[in-house]
C-alpha cells in the first residue's frame, strides 16, 4: 500500500468527494451503522457490500473498492431501506447517485447488466424523445450477442404474439417508430440540462 493511500484511510477525503459528487451524498456521514438497511434489502444477500458496508467503506476511504463495486447497481428501488432507516437516510437515492458517479468516472464493472440496460434505455429514449418499447425489448434480447438474441426471441415469441393480438405491441414500431410532438424542443431541454450538469461538475472539480 502506498503512503498516500495509507494516509487516506479513515479520513474524510473520499467522504467529501462523495458529498460533492453523489446525489444525496451529504447524508452518508449521518449513517449510524445499525444495519437495518442491509437487513431490509430483498436482494441484500446478493450484494457484495450491502448499504451499511458501502457507507462504512466510504468513511474508511476505500475509493476504488466502492466506485468499482457492482453492489449499488443491484438496487431495485424498492425503497424498503429508506422507509426503515432510523436516521431517515435516502439510501436508494444514494445508491443510484453512487452508480451514476461511478459511470461518470468510467469505473463501472465491465458487462454489468444493469449499467448496460441503463445505457440502452438512454440511447433509445434520446432518438425520439420517448421509449420505443419494441426496440428496447429487442435490444435487450440481443444485448449479449446475436445468437443469444435469437434464442431469447424464439423462447419469448408466444408472449410477443399475444401482445400483438391484444394491441399491447405494434410491430410497425420497428420501422422508425413515433416520437414526441416537439422532438427538437425535447433535445434542447436535454442539452440545457447537460450544460447545467457539466457546469456543476466543473465547479466541483475546481
Amino acid at each position: 500500500m502506498s503512503n498516500t493511500q495509507m494516509i487516506e484511510k479513515y479520513r474524510t477525503h473520499f467522504l467529501r468527494e462523495v458529498e460533492a459528487n453523489v446525489e444525496e451524498g451529504e447524508w452518508v456521514k449521518m449513517c449510524m451503522q445499525c444495519g437495518v438497511c442491509s437487513g431490509s434489502c430483498p436482494l441484500g444477500k446478493h450484494w457484495a457490500h450491502p448499504p451499511q458496508e458501502i457507507f462504512m467503506m466510504i468513511r474508511a476511504g476505500k475509493r476504488e473498492e466502492v466506485l468499482t463495486s457492482d453492489s449499488m447497481w443491484m438496487c431495485t428501488s424498492c425503497y424498503n431501506c429508506i422507509v426503515r432507516c432510523p436516521r431517515e437516510l435516502p439510501i436508494t437515492h444514494i445508491m443510484h447517485g453512487l452508480a451514476h458517479y461511478a459511470k461518470r468516472l468510467g469505473l463501472v464493472p465491465e458487462n454489468q447488466p444493469t449499467a448496460k440496460f441503463a445505457q440502452l434505455f438512454w440511447d433509445n429514449l434520446m432518438k425520439k424523445g420517448r421509449v420505443n418499447e419494441l426496440k428496447l425489448g429487442l435490444s435487450l434480447y440481443f444485448m449479449n450477442g446475436f445468437a443469444e438474441g435469437v434464442k431469447t426471441s424464439l423462447a419469448r415469441r408466444k408472449l410477443g404474439m399475444n401482445m400483438v393480438k391484444t394491441g399491447r405491441m405494434n410491430p410497425m414500431e420497428i420501422l422508425g417508430g413515433h416520437g414526441v410532438k416537439d422532438l427538437s424542443g425535447f433535445k434542447k431541454a436535454i442539452q440545457k440540462a447537460q450544460e447545467l450538469e457539466d457546469a456543476r461538475i466543473a465547479k466541483q472539480g475546481a
Partner: peptide, 24 residues
C-alpha cells in the same frame, strides 16, 4: 456507542454532522 442523557443521541448526530468518523 452509548450516549446517555437528554442530549445524547442529538450530540452523536452533531458529531456526525461535523464529519467525525465513527468506526465500529
Amino acid at each position: 456507542l452509548r450516549t446517555p442523557g437528554a442530549a445524547g443521541e442529538d450530540f452523536y448526530r452533531a458529531g456526525q454532522q461535523a464529519r467525525v468518523t465513527f468506526a465500529k
